[in-house]
Design a protein around this nucleic acid. Structure first.
Length: 860
RNA sequence: GCCGAAGUGGCGGAAUUGGUAGACGCGCUGGACUCAAAAUCCAGUUUGGCUCAAACCGAGUGGGGGUUCGAGUCCCCCCUUCGGCACCA
């Protein structure tokens, strides 16, 4: 009987669904395993061949571990808010909900067609109000928390209020302090505004990346993605929701050390957080009260600071600027602001304007000019720098262009370049109180930092590149932010019991025409009266970014239908953390950083039990087109999983995607390769099933011969180990070897072949189930015991020993395993070809590696 | 420019702690079956020399050097590709 994969695959998919084969209980005694795939955004284009890659990989591990007796949580859902559905709605006026539902149906059908062992009872959808109710709930938890620097953790905002009531601002690190009595005298609005600055979700006016065409702002992390697609992004100051991820910089960095993640991903997160140690130094401004604070990683070069630079938008510029320079400054400022951050980055020539003001170098007492230049950014450090042109390439370039003095203060040795930025030894760096001369750079840093601290004009500090997360989008198709802006200028969070705050239906989905989201047009929805105070209010029109829903979805999978909590605490403890997380590397800094951040807030507030969500992470590599180019419509090289399944079956596409190469590598599609694994499956089928559709008569209860038994044990060992190591390509190779060997046999030992089917099952579950049934079993093999191997029986009894002369192979002999060294040596010296080399030569040394080789070193 | 990863046959890729380079698959060549084809099965397939053949000898894991009895694997320099960051003070 022919291998009718379409019929077989449909039959077993229906069986699994009907019998809920993969539905998992929350409270059995078995050891738990939580394996998660990054859930997809259900686009209109449907599944592409990249999706099955990661999904099959996790599926194989899950199926194998079930057979090993684990209780496996392996869920799937939909990350369905987002811009594409909304853009489609703008063009067609079809509600994004409808588009989204349709796309989900396609995705669900395609994913089910691959025979993945998900627990479909746990399916979730981020756009379902029952789901986003809890996204909003978490938002409120974040909004109603502050970061207590003493405990280095998030705490409820009430704890801050209570502390202010008793201690005033004594425990806070702020510029202007007040007492508890003064605090109590403040008005409701004043108190509200003060507290607002400490919330983990807060509003601020900052320059953002506005995209006119999309009608929304984008996070820094998202800009590249959209500019690559041809959209233009401009900087403009706007009132925006932010999340205080920077409070977690240290912990995000520190805790990453314990994660089993790809090094490149950890590296990207490390770079993105961008921790650097240095010092703050305060420079007095000549003839004025004001002081300029700078951050530097090289306080040891302070004696070489010959000028200062402020970012064009620095607030002190207005105060310092002299009348003569004012006009030029204004002009430069305007130009700088108009430039996007990207343009500022790509410009090669340094530009800048002298402010007319001077500062005093605190170690030399010399007056140094203050400039503004757009190579200094307001967003990093203090927005001002001390310029040391002798030891900083940017400062050097600037100093040369504008004729500013250059002083060398670090000796980099004879070969040092003109601008030496490395570690060296201090020179020209001494005043009456402190000298860095002859000190190596690390020592010099310590010395000067201590001196600055003693004088009260500086201290050692740590700076981060990471900036707060721009959390709002001016979109319709996202989670509404559950906040009301009251007419007295205060904000009020919705009560938890009023969640979810559902999206109103709209007639039209065009941008509002202002910088507000289309929600601004939903008049009935927007305007509310606060029941408590009677004040009129307006709902927040911003919605959350797409990342919000995916920040915590893994927790919802644990308890997807819970109406009284986002997740039951006992269940959370049962399943967390995630043992394996697989998804694309494009999420290295976005989703994976935001998610860790939310998780840490929930951890601080006591809602989750682990400080990190994803213990082990792997990325699947990108699958290229058959021509080794990126798959795209324009190249016409896109492979559709539907077509492949129709032609070769789900088992074939699964097997091929795993056989192509290492999971994490980028690799090209190859239709011939699919045919190759398809042939393999057909061979397996024919081996077991004869023309009448019955079990082949050559399969009998029989004793295996030792060679075949050895290959069997080697196969059980290798397949098992390779699955655990996610090396599916080599596991499949080994199964092919086994089948090639089996085909040579006239009588095939039934027990070993049955066990082989169990090994194959995680990779090609449909055909395996069908053959298992033909072998006479009445229920699914999904929970059969995983075969064991015998290490002793894996070993070859006769071993080929390599004979070498001076490390070059000159012969091979076959001997019994564990032949003693002196015997191996004798056999080697007796070998005819070896004799040709040793005759008349002096033997210098003989190296014998048991069961491997004999190497004879001869002189001359 | 900086950081990270990687370079192995015609192709995708295998090779414990340094110990037979090229497993497995694709492609290709030859053969069997067939009227023929498809499918299937068998044999061969890194490359060069010498051979009817085998045996044997040489070259070979991006390039160059080194350590070692022995290097795809370890060290140094260089080249290329991919990914990330990009005036971060």
């Amino acid at each position: 009987m022919k291998y009718d994969f379409l019929q077989v695959e449909q039959k077993w998919q229906e069986y699994w669904q009907k019998n809920k084969t993969f539905s998992v209980s929350d409270n059995d005694k078995k050891q738990k395993l939580f394996v998660l795939d990054m859930f997809p955004y259900p686009s209109g284009a449907g599944l592409h061949v990249g999706h099955p890659e990661g999904y099959t990989a996790t599926d194989i591990l899950c199926r194998c571990r079930r057979m090993k007796g684990y209780s496996v949580l392996h869920p799937m859902g939909w990350d369905a808010f987002g811009l594409p559905a909304e853009r489609y709605a703008m063009q067609t006026n079809i509600h994004p909900r409808i588009t989204t539902e349709k796309n989900i149906e396609t995705f669900r059908r395609q994913i089910k067609m691959l025979g993945l062992s998900y627990d479909w009872d746990r399916e979730i959808n981020t756009t379902d109000p029952k789901y986003y109710r809890w996204t909003q709930w978490i938002f409120l938890k974040i909004f109603n928390s502050w970061f207590d620097p003493r405990e280095r953790k998030a705490r409820p905002i009430e704890t801050l209020e209570r502390d202010l009531d008793t201690n005033g601002t004594k425990n806070l690190d702020i510029d202007r302090h007040f007492t508890a009595e003064e605090w109590k005298k403040k008005s409701k609005k004043e108190k509200h505004d003060f507290i607002a600055q400490f919330r983990l979700a807060y509003i601020t006016e900052i320059p953002v990346n506005w995209c006119e065409k999309l009608g929304t702002v984008l996070a820094n992390e998202e800009v590249t993605e959209w500019t690559e697609k041809g959209y233009t992004v401009e900087r403009r100051p706007m009132r925006q929701w932010m999340m205080r991820i920077t409070a977690y910089s240290d912990r995000l960095l520190e805790d990453a050390k314990e994660l089993d993640w790809p090094i490149s991903t950890l590296e990207q997160q490390r770079n993105w957080i961008g921790r650097s140690e240095g010092a703050d130094v305060v420079f007095p401004v000549k003839d004025r009260e004001e002081k300029i604070k700078v951050f530097t990683t090289r306080p040891d070069t302070l004696f070489g600071a010959t000028y200062m630079v402020l970012a064009p938008e620095h607030p002190l510029v207005d105060i310092i600027a002299s009348k003569e320079q004012l006009q030029e400054i204004q002009k430069y400022r305007k130009e700088a602001l108009a430039k996007s951050e990207l343009e500022r980055g790509t410009e090669k020539e340094k530009t800048g304007v002298f402010t007319g003001g001077y500062a005093v170098n605190p170690v030399t007492g010399k007056e140094i000019p203050i400039w503004i230049a757009d190579y200094v950014m307001m967003g990093y450090g203090t927005g001002a720098i001390m310029a040391v042109p002798g030891h900083d390439e940017r400062d050097m370039e600037f100093a040369k262009k504008f004729g500013l003095p250059i002083i060398k203060v670090v000796d980099g040795g004879a070969d040092a370049p003109e601008c030496f930025v490395g570690d060296g030894v201090g020179i020209n760096s001494a005043n009456a109180e402190v000298s860095l001369n002859e000190l190596p750079t690390p020592e010099a840093k310590k010395t000067i930092t201590a001196w600055l601290a003693r004088k009260g004009i500086g201290k050692g500090t740590v700076q981060f590149k990471l900036r707060d997360w721009l959390f709002a989008r001016q979109r319709y198709w996202g989670e509404p932010i559950p906040i009301i802006n009251l007419e007295d200028g205060t904000m009020k969070a919705l009560d938890e019991k009023d969640l979810p705050l559902e999206l109103p239906d709209l007639e039209k989905f065009q941008p509002s025409g202002t910088t507000e989201s289309p929600l601004a047009l939903a008049v009935n929805w927007i305007n509310v009266v606060d029941k408590e105070t009677g004040l009129k209010g307006r709902r927040e029109t911003n919605t959350m970014p797409q990342w919000a829903g995916s920040c915590w979805y893994y927790l919802r999978f644990i308890d997807p239908r819970n109406d009284s909590a986002f997740c039951d605490p006992a269940k959370e403890k049962r399943w967390m953390p995630i043992d394996l997380y697989v998804g694309g590397s494009e999420h290295a800094v976005l989703h994976l950083m935001y998610s860790r951040f939310w998780h840490k807030v929930l951890f601080d507030l006591g809602y989750v039990s682990t400080k990190e969500p994803f213990m082990k992470l792997r990325h699947q590599g990108i699958i290229l087109g058959e021509d080794s180019r990126k798959m795209s419509k324009s190249w016409g090289n896109v492979v559709n999983p539907d077509d492949v399944v129709k032609e070769y079956g789900a088992d074939s596409i699964r097997l091929f995607e795993m056989f192509m190469g290492p999971l994490e590598d980028m690799k090209p599609w190859n239709t011939r390769g699919v045919e190759g694994v398809f042939r393999f499956l057909n061979r397996v089928w024919r081996l077991f099933i004869n023309d009448e559709g019955k079990l082949d008569l050559s399969i009998k209860e029989s004793e295996p011969d030792p060679d075949f038994e050895r290959i069997y044990h080697q196969t059980v060992k290798k397949v098992g180990e390779d699955i655990e190591g996610l090396r599916f390509n080599t596991a499949i190779s080994q199964m092919m070897i086994f089948i090639n060997e089996t085909m040579k046999l006239d009588v095939k030992p039934r027990k070993l072949l049955e066990n082989f089917i169990l090994l194959l099952a995680p990779f090609a579950p449909h055909i395996s189930e069908e053959i298992w049934e033909k072998l006479g079993h009445t229920k699914t093999l999904a929970y059969e015991t995983w075969p064991e191997y015998d290490e002793v029986k894996c070993a070859e009894s006769n071993i080929e020993i390599v004979l070498q002369i001076n490390g070059k192979i000159r012969g091979k002999i076959i001997t019994a395993k564990d032949t003693p060294n002196n015997e191996l040596e004798r056999l080697a010296l007796d070998d005819a070809n070896i004799k040709r080399y040793t005759d008349g030569k002096r033997i210098v040394k003989k190296i014998v590696i048991p069961n491997k080789l004999v190497n004879i070193v001869i002189a001359g």
